[in-house]
Amino acid sequence: MASKYLPILILAILVFVIGVSMLILNAILGLKRPYPEKLIRYECGLPPSGEPRHPFSVKFYAIAILFVVFDVEAVFLYPWAVSFDRLGALAYVEMVVFIALLLVAYFYAWIRGAFQWE
């Protein structure tokens, strides 16, 4: 049984060794010529403007979390739809409950004003 996973283990060790050796070789052999233009922040080809560490609104994070939640819904919904004909009625009921819970969360966020960007 363990012999089936031996090639994967060898590949993982090989990838780890190559990655670490590249990092070490770059640290040893890499050119280090810092100068002011090289050390300046890069902002899409434009000269940097303003302070880089300004706080974001909590609304930004709330929208990001909502996006992730509904994106995960799509990740779970696609495999279920592909294998729908092989699944039984119980799987259909479970998906209806899953979508209902997500709709409750969506309406809760909507009522609380999470989608209002101010």
Results as ranks from 00 to 15, higher is better:
22 M>H: 08
22 M>N: 10
23 L>P: 00
23 L>S: 10
23 L>G: 14
23 L>Q: 09
25 L>W: 09
25 L>N: 02
25 L>I: 08
26 N>M: 09
26 N>W: 06
26 N>C: 10
26 N>S: 03
27 A>F: 13
28 I>L: 15
29 L>V: 09
29 L>M: 11
29 L>I: 10
30 G>S: 05
31 L>N: 14
31 L>A: 14
31 L>G: 06
31 L>C: 06
31 L>V: 13
31 L>T: 14
32 K>P: 01
32 K>R: 12
33 R>L: 05
33 R>G: 05
33 R>Y: 05
33 R>T: 07
33 R>C: 01
34 P>I: 07
34 P>N: 13
34 P>R: 04
35 Y>E: 14
35 Y>Q: 14
35 Y>A: 14
36 P>N: 07
36 P>I: 01
36 P>F: 04
37 E>P: 01
37 E>A: 13
37 E>K: 00
37 E>M: 01
38 K>A: 02
38 K>E: 06
38 K>Q: 03
39 L>Y: 04
39 L>N: 13
39 L>F: 02
40 I>M: 14
40 I>K: 13
40 I>N: 03
40 I>S: 05
40 I>P: 00
41 R>P: 06
41 R>Q: 07
42 Y>T: 10
42 Y>M: 14
42 Y>G: 11
44 C>E: 10
44 C>P: 03
45 G>K: 00
45 G>C: 02
45 G>D: 02
45 G>E: 00
46 L>I: 01
46 L>C: 06
46 L>P: 02
46 L>Y: 03
47 P>L: 15
47 P>K: 11
47 P>Q: 10
48 P>M: 01
48 P>I: 00
48 P>A: 06
49 S>P: 02
51 E>K: 15
52 P>W: 03
52 P>G: 03
53 R>H: 09
53 R>V: 11
53 R>L: 09
54 H>E: 15
54 H>G: 11
55 P>I: 02
55 P>E: 08
55 P>C: 00
55 P>F: 08
56 F>W: 12
56 F>R: 04
57 S>K: 15
57 S>V: 08
57 S>H: 05
59 K>C: 01
59 K>P: 02
59 K>E: 00
59 K>A: 01
60 F>T: 03
60 F>M: 04
60 F>A: 10
61 Y>V: 01
61 Y>R: 00
61 Y>Q: 04
62 A>G: 06
62 A>L: 11
62 A>I: 07
63 I>F: 13
63 I>L: 15
63 I>D: 06
63 I>W: 10
63 I>H: 07
63 I>R: 14
64 A>G: 06
64 A>S: 08
66 L>S: 09
66 L>V: 09
66 L>F: 08
67 F>L: 00
